[in-house]
Design a protein around this nucleic acid. Structure first.
Length: 167
DNA sequence: CCCTGATTCGC
DNA sequence: GCGAATCAGG
């Protein structure tokens, strides 16, 4: 007799959709885009180790170099505005008030692809659940920032970094 | 001290 | 296969 209680990998009915093709695609895209594992993890909504672990399994590691990024944290002691995590902002915007009032003039009609990104373009990631047409805001980003005026308010916090890593 | 990525190890 | 814990480098 077949046993219906035979749950192998123990997965939720519809929630916790682990690493699906869409997520893996985003993972590769962001990885090749030059984003850090922490940034990729934040965009997808998983922890940093999850991204690194998946990358290792996919043999997408950049070799044995730990990190070749420029670390200017030693010199910059000014009130640094750390980039907020997208899922954190969304949770804050939709979780508290329930009113999705956008802060600032954000135009979604100016979005562009990854290859169309430039230094003066907003790099706000427009990713939807199952985003095959992954793109960015594409608005004018002043001050050479990564985001436009509207997204910059949402993307940066005038406070210390939050300890949201790990779970 | 902070950060980063890579590996190890238990589930 | 998955991710936290741990390790290793800067």
């Amino acid at each position: 007799m077949a046993d219906i209680c035979n749950l192998g990998p123990l997965q939720m009915p519809v929630l916790s959709p682990t690493w699906t093709d869409e997520r893996i695609e985003l993972l590769k895209q962001h990885f090749e885009a030059g984003l850090s594992c922490r940034e990729i993890a934040a965009d997808i909504g998983v922890s940093r180790n999850a991204v690194i672990g998946k990358l290792s399994r996919l043999n997408l590691t950049r070799g044995r170099s730990t990190d070749e990024r420029k670390l200017d944290r030693s010199s910059a002691r000014a009130p640094k505005a750390v980039p907020r995590l997208q899922y954190e902002m969304l949770a804050t915007l939709y979780g508290e008030t329930g009113a999705p009032a956008v802060t600032g003039p954000i135009d979604d009609a100016n979005r562009c692809s990854l290859l169309e990104l430039a230094e003066n373009r907003c790099r706000w990631p427009i990713s939807t659940p199952g985003a095959e047409d992954f793109c960015f805001c594409g608005n004018t980003a002043p001050d050479g920032q990564s985001y436009c005026a509207g997204h910059s308010r949402l993307a940066y916090r005038p406070n210390s970094r939050a300890r949201i890593m790990r779970g």
